[in-house]
Amino acid sequence: MLQTMEISLTPFDAARIVLEHVQASGMTVECVGQHATATEAGHQTALLIFEKYYMRTSSRASLTVLLENLAGPTKAVFRGSGGGEGALFRFDWGASADFAASVVDALEPYATA
Score class of each variant (00 low, 15 high):
44 Q>G: 08
5 M>Q: 09
82 G>I: 08
93 W>A: 07
7 I>H: 02
47 L>Q: 10
50 F>E: 08
98 D>T: 14
106 A>V: 04
15 A>F: 02
42 G>L: 04
6 E>T: 14
103 V>Q: 01
84 G>V: 00
86 G>L: 09
36 A>Q: 14
18 V>N: 01
8 S>Q: 06
67 L>D: 04
9 L>C: 09
36 A>C: 07
80 G>M: 01
57 T>F: 09
83 G>C: 06
101 A>I: 04
23 Q>R: 14
43 H>G: 07
98 D>I: 06
41 A>L: 15
57 T>N: 11
99 F>K: 05
45 T>D: 03
78 F>W: 10
38 A>W: 09
22 V>G: 02
81 S>C: 01
19 L>K: 13
60 R>C: 13
83 G>P: 05
54 Y>W: 13
34 Q>T: 14
97 A>S: 15
13 D>A: 14
68 E>F: 03
71 A>Y: 07
105 D>C: 04
59 S>D: 14
62 S>I: 05
40 E>M: 11
6 E>D: 09
81 S>R: 03
95 A>M: 09
72 G>R: 10
91 F>I: 10
14 A>W: 04
78 F>D: 03
13 D>G: 03
22 V>Y: 01
13 D>L: 08
6 E>F: 07
34 Q>S: 15
95 A>W: 00
4 T>C: 01
66 L>C: 06
95 A>T: 14
86 G>A: 09
102 S>I: 01
106 A>S: 06
45 T>P: 02
27 M>W: 14
19 L>P: 00
59 S>Q: 12
87 A>E: 12
28 T>C: 08
41 A>G: 14
85 E>Q: 11
92 D>Q: 06
40 E>A: 14
101 A>L: 11
9 L>A: 06
73 P>M: 12
20 E>D: 12
52 K>R: 15
39 T>F: 04
46 A>E: 12
41 A>H: 14
49 I>V: 12
105 D>H: 07
26 G>P: 07
14 A>S: 06
70 L>D: 12
21 H>K: 10
54 Y>I: 03
88 L>I: 10
91 F>D: 11
53 Y>A: 11
46 A>H: 10
41 A>D: 15
53 Y>D: 09
27 M>V: 15
23 Q>P: 00
58 S>Q: 15
83 G>E: 03
49 I>S: 05
46 A>D: 05
33 G>W: 05
68 E>C: 05
16 R>E: 14
11 P>K: 01
87 A>T: 10
57 T>Q: 13
43 H>A: 12
87 A>D: 13
12 F>G: 01
101 A>D: 14
